[in-house]
């Protein structure tokens, strides 16, 4: 038993001494690109896609997956702990500037660039979008006759009877409770903190512990559980194109080209398929990322 413990201890020590240990903090060292992700599976999948695309070009990559919410990861890429983060342009903008209401993709990009930290830059956006959404469960849709033609504004008279759920950060975000109040004038009965479109959110909607929740539009469970995604006519959740956020000068040109090539091929349909493989078919995101890159001629 002592021998086993000693071996394990050594294994732990030696692997954590290696530069590519994803578990230690600190700064990214010069010759390795650190790709981070937020604490939801789609973000980890995208990080794996970026990382493997960079590796295919001979760039050294380390992963720091499942870090936490954007409130945390934006600080980490700003201080140099991370080099690359998969981002969603509209959500990033809302984090930087609560009041921005861009009408087009270009306006979104310009508004972000105006507020982005001077050491950071965005590469090309992918056509793929994955939005936060106001989604009701089947029971609620039936009770209040809500269909996929209904909009968030239709909740106006009934919001006071409904419990809304979302990630803890949803409570304090413009693209969250704050915006639902200021843009749509909705005040819900209460807010239940769940997770970022993960198993808690799914369970709470199915059990009717919440009637409304923030679910990503690329979530395979929406069709499976007959959830209804409400339209967003006032564009609160804006554009949500998948887009790499990187530190300036930290990526060689071939890395920039590799990520732009990924973005060019990544559309919403593809992202939904890949999400389904990870979340519904329980495949490892790294395997899914590699397989897709190969099939797209990028791996």
């Amino acid at each position: 038993m002592v021998a086993l413990a000693a071996t394990a201890l050594l294994a732990g020590c030696s692997s954590s001494d290696k530069a590519d240990n994803p578990l230690t903090g600190g700064k990214a060292d010069g010759d390795s690109v650190v790709v981070g992700s937020n604490n939801f599976p789609e973000s980890t999948l995208l990080a794996d896609i970026y990382g493997e695309a960079l590796k295919a070009k001979g760039i050294k990559v380390t992963y720091k997956p499942n870090i936490g919410s954007r409130e945390t990861t934006y600080g980490l890429i700003k201080n140099g702990s991370l080099t690359v983060m998969p981002e969603f342009n509209g959500a990033l903008l809302a984090h930087l500037d609560k009041k921005a209401t861009p009408k087009t993709l270009e306006e979104t990009q310009d508004a972000i660039n105006a507020k982005l930290d001077s050491q950071l830059t965005l590469l090309d956006p992918a056509p793929a979008q994955s939005k936060d959404s106001v989604t009701v469960n089947a029971a609620t849709a039936g009770k209040y006759h809500l269909t996929d033609k209904s909009s968030i504004a239709d909740l106006k008279d009934i919001a006071g009877d409904l419990v809304i759920g979302g990630s803890p950060e949803f409570q304090a975000r413009q693209q969250g409770l704050e915006g639902l109040k200021s843009v749509y004038g909705l005040e819900f009965k209460s807010f239940k903190a769940l997770d970022t479109g993960g198993p808690l959110t799914l369970a709470a909607l199915k059990k009717n512990a919440v009637q409304v929740a923030d679910v990503f539009t690329t979530d395979p469970n929406i069709t499976k559980e007959k959830f209804v995604v409400l339209r967003d006519p006032k564009n609160l959740f804006g554009f949500q194109n998948v887009q790499p956020l990187v530190r300036k000068g930290a990526l060689p040109q071939k890395g920039v080209d590799a990520l732009n090539a990924v973005s060019a091929k990544l559309d919403t349909k593809t992202l939904l398929e890949l999400d389904t493989q990870v979340q519904a078919e329980k495949k490892d995101p790294l395997d899914v990322a590699r397989a897709w890159l190969k099939s797209a001629g990028l791996g």
């Binding site: 413990a5 394990a8 294994a11 732990g12 020590c13």
Partner: peptide
């Protein structure tokens, strides 16, 4: 798994 055990003990 063994790596995690070592890390955990440390």
């Amino acid at each position: 798994w063994l790596g995690l055990v070592g890390l955990h003990l440390r």
